[in-house]
Design a protein around this nucleic acid. Sequence first.
RNA 1: GGGUCCGUAGCCUAGCGGAGAAGGCGGCAGCCUUCGGAGCUGCAGAUCAGGGGUUCGAAUCCCCUCGGGCCCGCCA
Length: 555
Amino acid sequence: MDMKYPFDEFEREVRQKLAERGYPNAKIEEPKEEIADLAFPCFHLSKIFKKPPDKIAEDIAKNIGHGKWIGKVEAINGYVNFHINIKELANVVKEVGKDFGKGKKKNITVIVEHTSANPTGPLHIGRARNPIIGDSIARILKFGGYDVKTQYYVDDMGKQVAILLWGIKNLKIRSDEKRLHYKYVKFYQEAAKLMEEDEKIRDEISNIIKKCEEGDKKVLEEIKKVYKPVLNGIIESLHQINISIDEFVEESKFVINGDVYNIINKLASLKYAKKDGRAIYLDLEDFGIHGRSKKFFLTRSDGTSLYAARDIAYHIWKGERADMLIDILGEDHKLEAEQVRIALKLLNEKLPEVVFYSFVSLPEGRMSTRRGKVIYLDDLIEESIERAKKEIRNRNMGREKIDYISQNVGIGAIRYNIIKVNPDKSIVFKWEDALNFEGESAPFIQYAHARCCSILKKAEIKEKSNYSFNHPSEIKLIKTIAKFPNFVRKAINNRNPAIVAEYAYKLASDFNAFYRDCKVIGSKEEQDRLALVNASKQILASSLNLLGIEALEEM
RNA sequence: GGGUCCGUAGCCUAGCGGAGAAGGCGGCAGCCUUCGGAGCUGCAGAUCAGGGGUUCGAAUCCCCUCGGGCCCGCCA
């Protein structure tokens, strides 16, 4: 059994009471918090009973009575409004610890695939949305009781990486760039340009791809040697923003072990399979894909496999290793993901859930590595940490502490600013927003946490058997704290970390209001309030951890 | 041409069938007789892109139009 959480118990009781009065499966809703904790609208009953909604609500409210969790019931404007019993709720402060909000162990394994960027250059801020979403989802699912592993699918045999290899072997480019992967990206860019202009180069690159397909060990080794430093650079950037990936899976694996060709053969035997010259494709007309998009190519006419075909093999392989698959993909992959999904369905294989995110662009327009219109993640990180350092450098702290704090504030700000917006909204990157340390931002939340710590350091908590809260700001805060498990659940169900981000901000904001209105140390409610501060601290820390942001004790 | 997502105050975002549309940034005016000012309070600012429809009730659901992103490659 999951732990019992107050707002679940409260809702259960409300539903039970309504069912007893003849309203089973009632549609109840959560109104604005100033109004009530739960409400039952009676408008739809008006026709049935031939009475105005107000009257119906009044009749119901009169007959409900109190309960363990129901404190007050009243009828207003055609709603039956339920208020949670604060006396009962107050004692959750005793339950709130690190595990508050955690789901029970589910024995469900999940593979979250994220980032999977081509190892041909450093991550730019557009691609950074992927790992930040993926890592946060992985953290939230783990907290919810799932066994989660993250994977990065390394494209070590596509055109991109072949272009990079060709460039490094054939071009001479001078660069004073010290970091190897930054140097390499220049080779890639130049090679890609030359390839477009020159058919001979195009053939040479095709030849590299063909060799890979044949499982040519020497070429695959050469490729690995070139992409490895680039991938290491990416791993390092990710590490900086608190992201580490459990497993790296090379695409070539599925060509070498024959999976790709077995799958292509299987698909080629289906009635949807057709040929264009010697290239094999699936006709997806019957699956609701029309127009030019309906041809889903699996092979080139030279017999080599295409990315999407290999992706099918990868998904089947993943499906054998986990109960649930989640992919984080940019919206540009929507069609490809749908095609892969249809193929997997035809093969009767496990289907992935895909979380898509919209693009990050610059005020001048789309990011483009070619035209040099990019902002690299590393530069953002550096700038953000620098900005955080400026804020605290005059404080009386050791250098190590200053570094530690500015590191975590800077990174927190980056992660928060990206994760707080729903993935389906596009983002126009602006430095002033990305480096915002005020208001709806990580530092704001971290600051509230540090305040909690500071208060707790100055006083001693003594356990009480019964807690009570009376000030409106105390009540608002304890309610928000108690709702944490509900928000975690919602974030899991929607696969959306933005829900946790928004919650964390509200918690911090409610804590600040409490801090403003209620003196803790030296007050006659000191012990009750210390318990409330401690609970706030715990949940602020839990929320931040779910987003991969460090809960700082001082800043 | 086909598909898909988005359009909420100057800017960014929440709400996605129910009760004066909720926050942040920016602007203006305030709050240090000390529990951390990366904070707090107040003010100004919204035909919820536009038009139809469904409903007792629509920012929210359906249709159309307009604007923008992304895709429609034997690239990944």
